[in-house]
């Protein structure tokens, strides 16, 4: 029995002194393994007097389980230490940059277009598209431009031939729409328009325009103002209001230019951001497409994408949009 105690005491001491899980594993084998010391003591049972056999066996087994417990305890402590050491060794330099991921960036103008599109669809408008190379009649005559009228001077036009031009305004989709759809309708488009202008920081021969229109019973200037207000608030926040000023476009009557509260006034600029033209669809157009002007009326508005985008991001040169310098495009990760 004394022998058991001695062996256990020695083992406990070694367990305490063990400095690694590997050392502990050796101790375990040495004492508790199949040819370990305590296991060896158990074999002596056979040579003991019968009455001592159960007692001795029990004592050895108890010592074994105490040692096992001590080993487990010590092991988990040592493992934690070792892990901590390992982790410390594996510590990264948090200030090193992350690995590059190739992210596709939408063009900054597309980002504005996508936002406008979401808002307009939310207002119940249907997105459609028309050709950029348009028939002269859809661009002018169908929009109530009298033949050879100075209103066309505002829009120096790229003609292909007598019948075709590059559309000067997305409003050109109106006639095409009225040919295939009946009121009530709410339709909009966004696309490229072209005007033969000298190019500088604020003028280009190509620009992006949103054009929207709706026809229903009893549509008024108040609905136009309300829709533009809702649009502006969805785009720029709840404090937006809309200002109308009389203006002239052959395809609307009354015609207005409209401005919204300048949401970027903190960056300089006036109280208002003038972004487009609007009005009630001219009754001559409704007549031309067989829409009863006593029953129906409609509004139309158009606005420039570049203006919104430039004001929002503080971009001061229109030419950057088509320059494709990544140093510019990457500033707008979308």
């Amino acid at each position: 029995m004394k022998e058991i105690e001695a062996v256990e005491e020695r083992a406990q001491l070694e367990i305490e002194k063990a400095t690694s899980t590997k050392e502990l594993r050796d101790i375990e084998v040495r004492y508790l393994g199949r040819s370990g010391e305590l296991t060896g003591l158990l074999r002596q049972v056979g040579s003991l007097p019968t009455d001592q056999k159960p007692l001795f066996g029990k004592a050895v087994n108890e010592a074994k389980s105490r040692l096992q417990e001590a080993i487990d305890l010590r092991e988990s402590a040592l493992r934690a230490e070792e892990e901590a050491k390992q982790f410390a060794q594996e510590k990264v330099d948090l200030t090193m940059p992350g690995r590059k991921v190739r992210v596709g960036l939408p063009h900054v103008l597309s980002q504005t277009i996508d936002r406008v599109k979401r808002v307009m669809i939310g207002l119940g408008f249907r997105y459609t598209e028309g050709p950029e190379l348009e028939e002269v009649r859809y661009n002018f005559a169908a929009l109530n431009y009298p033949p050879d009228h100075p209103a066309m001077d505002d829009q120096d036009t790229f003609y292909i031939d007598d019948d075709r031009l590059l559309r000067t305004q997305c409003t050109a989709i109106q006639g095409r729409t009225f040919e295939r759809m009946k009121p009530p309708l709410r339709v909009f488009t966004i696309g490229r328009c072209f005007r033969n202008e000298a190019v500088d920081r604020t003028h280009g021969h190509t620009f992006m325009q949103v054009d929207a229109f709706m026809i229903d019973e009893g549509i008024s200037m108040a609905h136009l103002r309300g829709t533009l207000g809702a649009f502006a608030r969805a785009m720029f926040g709840p404090e937006m209001t809309v200002r109308f000023r009389p203006d002239f476009f052959p395809f609307v009557e009354p015609g207005v230019d409209f401005a919204i509260t300048n949401p970027f006034k903190h960056r300089g600029g006036g109280d208002w951001m003038e972004i487009g033209g609007a009005g009630l669809i001219h009754p001559n157009i409704l007549d031309a497409y067989g829409i009863d002007t006593e029953k129906y009326s409609g509004f139309a508005f158009g606005l420039g994408i570049e203006r919104i985008c430039m004001t929002q991001y503080g971009i001061d040169d229109l030419r950057l949009f088509f320059d494709n310098d990544l140093r510019f495009l990457e500033q707008f990760p979308g």
């Binding site: 307009m120 669809i121 119940g124 249907r126 459609t128 609905h223 103002r225 309300g226």
Partner: peptide
């Protein structure tokens, strides 16, 4: 001119 939203339902969407 006051602000008013058109009533009546149309389906917003994309061709």
């Amino acid at each position: 001119i006051p602000e008013a939203l058109p009533t009546g339902a149309t389906m917003g969407g994309e061709d």
